[in-house]
């Protein structure tokens, strides 16, 4: 099929879609006047029932926790898939000091405090998800972006030492398993899977809202290590060659 024919078919379909979509959009509830009842119910319940002030995270890690468990395993599986597809080539890399060039001292000076701040901020994000906007997913990505700064400011070897450590893979598995294990511990208390059975604490404190905080921290661990593994897998070939050539 040539480009022209394909584009023509696209325009016809797009026109049809636009007509139908316009009719649908006109009949949706007018913008700004949503009437759905579930949001009101949950927002009036979550502070009393779960002692969590961030309703979105209370939904994600508690009311809809089983869904999020599946979502976390989607992440786990896709990282597994990427690592299997792009397995680093077996090369005997002999790293030589000359091949590694770091950036200018100015960049290093900017990057290293930034590294510390990113990790600290990521930890804060993933442990305060039940109180303020944030949570495991966001905190995890923030933590995982810190080693990229090492890659930028320092040399490949430092980045490789951080990201290809066997501990990273273990931590990823631990993060993914931790969520399910927290769900299973509910059985010990004699309640169904993923029930929030831990004492809920005082609303507004860090150690409140029971399993929501624990699950958020587990997800943070999983996401951080998953993105570390992803970035290492994508960069593995460049890193291997950088040690070899020159």
């Amino acid at each position: 099929m040539s480009q022209k024919v394909r584009l023509r078919i696209f325009w016809i379909c797009a026109a049809g879609f636009a007509c139908i979509y316009f009719l649908v959009a006109k009949n949706l509830p007018p913008w700004g006047h949503y009437r759905g009842p579930y949001g009101d119910v949950i927002s009036s319940l979550s502070v009393y029932e779960r002692h969590a002030t961030d309703v979105v995270n209370a939904i994600d890690y508690d009311y809809r926790g089983f869904d999020t468990l599946a979502e976390e395993f989607i992440l786990f599986t896709s990282v597994l898939g990427v690592m299997m597809l792009l397995r680093p080539p077996e090369r005997k890399a002999t790293p030589s000091a000359t091949a590694e060039e770091s950036m200018s001292p100015a960049v290093q000076l900017a990057a290293l405090p930034c590294f510390a701040i990113l990790i600290l901020f990521g930890l804060y994000m993933s442990t305060h998800g039940q109180l303020t906007p944030g949570g495991g997913f966001q905190g995890g990505v923030i933590i995982a972006s810190a080693p990229m700064l090492v890659y930028v400011a320092e040399h490949f070897r430092a980045f490789k030492r951080i990201t290809s450590h066997p501990l990273v893979e273990g931590l990823e598995a631990a993060g993914a398993a931790g969520y399910a294990v927290i769900g299973v511990t509910a059985f010990a208390a004699g309640v169904p899977f993923l029930t929030n059975w831990v004492p809920l604490g005082v609303t507004g404190k860090v150690f409140s809202s029971g399993t929501i905080a624990a699950i958020s921290a587990c997800v943070g661990l999983e996401v951080a290590t998953a993105f570390l593994l992803l970035s290492y897998t994508y960069l593995a070939e460049i890193i291997a060659d950088a040690g070899k050539t020159k």
């Binding site: 990057a111 901020f121 994000m125 303020t132 906007p133 944030g134 810190a146 700064l149 400011a153």
Partner: peptide, 17 residues
Amino acid sequence: MDLPLTVAIMSLAAGLV
């Protein structure tokens, strides 16, 4: 106020990278 903080930190890091 966490959000502008995140943008400030992340945009610096992303800009460097």
